[in-house]
Design a protein around this nucleic acid. Structure first.
Lengths: 189, 189
DNA sequence: CCCTGAAGTGTTATATTATATCGTTTTTGT
DNA sequence: ACAAAAACGATATAATATAACACTTCAGGG
């Protein structure tokens, strides 16, 4: 409800815009600005390869392909969209379990995250540490940014602990409008 | 993944235990202790009736029935479980849209919440104000408690705002073990 | 009271997301 | 090379949710 009121297929309707008009308010806003995303992807793939090697995990061709498709999208992408791309690009008649198994592996290795409010998956920017993400999801363009280094999560868990609850995992997703999709307001708000 | 690793049907496997052995650590821990839940439910229904009247919204018999079933469960309950109960208890051959429409109404009125990690629904304790919940979900017994009066949410939104993101809605779900399901540790941790 | 339009509900069909199961292939360790 | 484990292919099906359209009920105005 709330979010995803329709949006059946997430596909890849990138716009790759924001040529400066709205001015992204900080340096880390890479998610909202155009950049050389293909280099993003290859960097992520390299890092993933390295990490898996370190961990004695097998980043097989298939898993790598799925990871690449997830990264390519730049927005959370659905499992069945991945499936479609695999079947299209590589003439491979992939079935759901193929994709879900790969996704499960990537999730376990923290190479991707699952966005619960979208039933979709997105590449993780800092896979080297198991962390809890805070996701900012644009209701309009679906661009999703992950905030890291979050003391808020600790606070939340602390508050949970105060009630006797032993927290193991947290899920924080914030919906709203990304800088690029906000109605233009000419001066600083 | 993470949570809900199987658990196909949420059903109502209450245990209604915790007769004092683990000692719930604070007064507000009603969710984890046995109490007169039927009075909870009737109170919630009364309040809902009143609120809807105030708002000029129609809490029809069907919507009330769904609300009651959600409250009865005491744990997040799936739409199809509600469906099954409606078809059983009242010899009514309800179809999915019937339940989903009622759930949508109740969500809009903030009479219930949706727990995204479980694809399930739970009654809201303080429906009079539109608020953002923080949910503590027990991975073992599924009991879910809602924390309210949360400055953490404000902090999160503040942090989002700092990056130029205009937050409208937040989703916070923390998984772990509720007091009753934690391995017994005899002295205070 | 009766009409009318809007809201609510019933019903059928179908979309979307995810998993179970089992057989085959590939990889790893010995 | 061989056996065990892991990964993958393939078919079927489960679980969650929505579309579309017909019918009923309700609120409000004449």
């Amino acid at each position: 409800m709330t979010l995803s009121t329709k949006a059946s297929s997430l596909k890849a309707r990138d716009h790759e815009d924001s040529s400066g008009s709205q001015a992204s308010s900080d340096l880390a806003n890479q998610a909202y600005t155009s950049h050389d995303h293909s280099s993003c992807v290859s960097k992520a793939l390299e890092q993933a390869t390295e990490l898996c090697q370190q961990r004695g995990q097998r980043l097989t061709a298939l898993r790598k392909q799925v990871l690449e498709l997830v990264w390519d999208s730049h927005k959370p992408i659905g499992a069945y969209d991945i499936l479609a791309m695999m079947s299209k690009d590589q003439d491979r008649p992939a079935a759901p379990p193929t994709v879900y198994r790969a996704l499960d592996f990537l999730l376990e290795q923290s190479l991707i995250h699952r966005i619960a409010s979208l039933n979709a998956y997105i590449g993780c920017h800092c896979p080297d540490s198991t962390h809890e993400g805070i996701f900012l999801i644009c209701e309009k363009c679906r661009t999703t940014r992950e905030l890291t280094g979050s003391e808020e999560i600790s606070l939340l868990k602390q508050q949970a602990a105060n009630t006797g609850f032993q927290a193991t995992h947290s899920l924080v997703e914030i919906s709203g409008l990304c800088p690029a999709c906000q109605p233009a307001c000419h001066e600083g708000a």
